[in-house]
Design a protein around this nucleic acid. Structure first.
Lengths: 338, 338
DNA sequence: GTCCCTGATGTAAGCGCTTACAATTCACTT
DNA sequence: AAGTGAATTGTAAGCGCTTACATCAGGGAC
């Protein structure tokens, strides 16, 4: 059914080796035969067989990404950046999803099937015990996105710095009694953001009241979702707590909180100023002040790192960290003279 | 480097055929040797070679999805549904992105490489001339998502119906002079939504004023984006047009429009009622009335269709159409007695 | 005209697996 | 004790491609 190099060879009156050479741009083929082979191949609609090729070559042109959740904008956008860059090459992208940390290992196992992928991209998954061992034994190139491990290339955002900037900015606009809407503390990015925020506050002699810290790991994706934000803020309000500022560890949480506030007597930004994290497109349209992560750029860079590691496996491990940038909008006020 | 069935065979003192049988759950292996082989395999950390396997079997367990844009929530969510269902099988998902219609053919070409995928899922791409021919000649199973062609299985939303429902609802809440925020008219879903809306209006003797129809194909993804909505609404306002209702062909457009309205003297829903399309998670948090598409379910169903077609290629073509459901929120008012 | 070199092409041996078919074993029959 | 058939295992031929090596023709150099 499928037509093979044998068919082409026969029709063009050459050997299969020659056909193969033509398709591999091997210079040791005369122009005339090359043209003849191409002619026949076009006519017959020949397509090299992907598996046969990678088997014979002992390598694939596929990379795998293991992502917690496609429908999370952050991942989707990083993948987009990745794909845009990848489109310039002949690589293909295999996407595995691992909504919970337990599932990562299983998906990784699939991605690591021998001969399946030339490299793996692991998103937001702490590399621990089992994982590390598994990664080690198949010496496939790996790059970590949105997480860190000394032994692997990684790409991430400086979450602590982001937290600090959030604190500085909130303080500069007059906030004195902030609250934090925190995702699952087991999430490394979330805890770094909180840590940075606390540090930023403390530099100005302000501390985060314990009851002003709302931790939520509810719902999917470690509490990085609208509902967690909504419920968290509601809980705060019900406890009669009225902070004058709010740092949410993600935009979606912030948006949930904004909705909760709409049902209250507190106005944004008069009574409470809000700052998120990520800069989703929607943030612009709800006027949310936030810290932007260069998602698409992270994806592009991640792909470059992976390529680099694939071609030069012995290179020293590289960690690239992006600084989040502050995007002031209308959920915060203008600076206040200090 | 990688260990093969030969290694296992030797270590276990059996032939490669036996090893292969063990890994294919062939019943013609005694329990004792099966156990022995497994033991050795585990110990050596054996992994079947994906390419070799699919070459020998003349089939893959990979399917390809060609998607306009991963960072568009609709696609991400459909893919999520798809993946969830797929996780129950041993299939892998290859994702190609084709931001513009011109790119579809090239990506399809890659996905159709012989031996690469067992089936292809084509998103929002009208199957025309070149495509159709290409699809025909490689007789790989295909399912169309969010588009239609008589010759291929497809899965979509009843966009006309959605438009009608939007019209009916808006009229029932008192709207008499609606506007429409339309994406690129070349987009089949968008034009169907408009068509349905018009039809819904006309049934009640109301017509859409021509200058109340704002068409925008600006920006990425055929104008299905926030900015298109923002600019569209702004243009309307600048023209001094003040409709009492707005149907946007997508939630993101509606959200952009809402932001534009915030800068005007028109309140939602007092002066203008708004209805979107899709029901993104964010819609809930901005209170947007909309028509829900069961995205995740569409993905799951798409995968089932593809599997079905893969196992029974001769089945008659099936088109499954989901009816969008109305989700009333606060951008529209309660029903009004007529 | 012979020799050698070069460039173009062919031959054949894999890559790691599946699977039809052959071979072997073993428990029973007869 | 030989024969039978079922259960188990082995042998070997692919799957479609790449590529090291062999072959071959043609063009100087002598």
């Amino acid at each position: 059914m499928g037509i093979t190099i044998y068919d082409i060879a026969e029709a063009a009156g050459v050997s299969i080796a020659t056909v193969s050479r033509v398709f591999n741009d091997n210079p040791r083929v005369s122009e005339s035969t090359r043209a003849a082979v191409m002619e026949v191949a076009d006519q017959l609609g020949y397509q090299p067989h992907a598996s046969a090729r990678s088997l014979a070559r002992q390598q694939t042109e596929t990379i795998s990404a293991i992502v917690p959740m496609l429908s999370n904008y952050f991942y989707a956008e990083v993948l987009k950046g990745l794909q845009d860059r990848m489109a310039e090459t002949s690589f293909d992208l295999l996407v595995y999803s691992a909504p919970t940390l337990d599932e990562v290992e299983g998906q990784l196992e699939k991605a690591l099937h021998r001969g399946r992928s030339a490299g793996v991209m692991l998103f937001s998954a702490p590399v621990i015990d089992g994982l590390e061992q598994r990664l080690q034994q198949s010496d496939i190139p790996v790059v970590l996105v949105d997480c860190y491990h000394p032994a692997y290339d990684s790409i991430s955002t400086d979450n602590r710095r982001g937290g600090e900037v959030a604190a500085d900015y909130l303080l500069s606009t007059g906030v004195r009694n902030p609250a934090v809407l925190m995702a699952n503390p087991h999430s490394v990015p979330a805890s770094h953001r909180l840590e940075g925020f606390r540090h930023g506050l403390s530099r100005q002699g302000i501390t985060l009241e314990e009851d002003h810290l709302i931790v939520s790991s509810m719902g999917y994706h470690d509490g990085f979702n609208e509902q967690a934000g909504y419920e968290g803020m509601t809980k705060l309000l019900e406890a009669g707590i009225k902070p004058d500022g709010l740092f949410a560890t993600s935009d979606v949480q912030a948006i949930g909180a904004m909705e909760a506030l709409r049902h209250s007597d507190m106005n944004i930004p008069e009574h409470i100023q809000i700052i998120g994290f990520d800069d989703l497109p929607i943030a612009r349209y709800v006027g949310l002040t936030t810290l932007r992560q260069p998602m698409s750029e992270m994806g592009a860079r991640a792909f470059e790192l992976l390529m680099e590691r694939m071609t030069r496996p012995a290179n020293t491990v590289a960690h690239t960290v992006f600084a989040p940038t502050l995007i002031p909008r209308t959920t915060t006020r203008e600076h206040v003279a200090v």
